[in-house]
């Protein structure tokens, strides 16, 4: 009986480990490194960016997503984007993405800033936090694994929580 249970536990651990992982101490490298793709220029003529997919591990970790949510408020992202509904800045919970919806696109937008008001946060926010915010931003439009998504916050609810009934729009 016991070996059976143990085996089951081990198997389950393979499936669950990442979502519950909590990185409580971050290396200095994670604070400085600026993203998966290093580019030469901020603006590039011609075709849009090639879609290079970067795996943002923060998207798979509930803790990181929750940190993203906290930082989103702490760094005053909601000042312009509100709670994802948009205001001075564009809405983040709808389907349209001006600069692409992939993690590296969003990451780059945060690092580099964009015309018409989006400041550059590169060097101001540690890189790992940018990835966390990226993950959270993507979670607002349901682009991350649902099981890891953040819960509702203990604040006024100005948007529908990631995990709640969606048809109430």
């Amino acid at each position: 009986m016991t070996p059976l249970i143990l085996t089951l536990c081990l198997l389950a651990s393979l499936a669950s480990c990442r979502r519950e992982q909590r990185q409580l101490r971050h290396s200095p490298q994670a604070s400085t490194r600026t993203g998966g793709i290093v580019r030469d220029a901020e603006l590039q003529p011609g075709q849009p960016w090639p879609e290079v997919t970067v795996r943002n591990v923060s998207e798979e970790r509930a803790w990181d997503l929750n940190e993203g949510q906290r930082l989103y408020r702490a760094y005053n992202c909601n000042g312009c984007h509100a709670n994802g509904g948009g205001g001075m800045g564009p809405a983040l919970m709808d389907e349209s993405w001006i600069y692409g919806s992939h993690p590296e696109n969003i990451h780059d937008v945060i690092v580099e800033g964009r015309p018409n008001g989006m400041p550059s946060f590169g060097g101001k926010i540690p890189d790992y936090q940018i990835w966390e915010i990226t993950a959270y931003v993507r979670s607002m439009s349901g682009l991350v694994p649902k099981l890891a998504a953040t819960g509702r916050t203990d604040h006024m609810q100005t948007k529908i929580s990631e995990q709640s009934k969606k048809e109430e729009k």
Binding site: R152, Q157, I160, S161, S164, K165, E168
Partner: peptide, 11 residues
């Protein structure tokens, strides 16, 4: 009744 309740449990 449940279908016509005009608010949600997360409201």
């Amino acid at each position: 009744e449940l279908a016509t309740i005009g608010y949600n449990w997360n409201s």
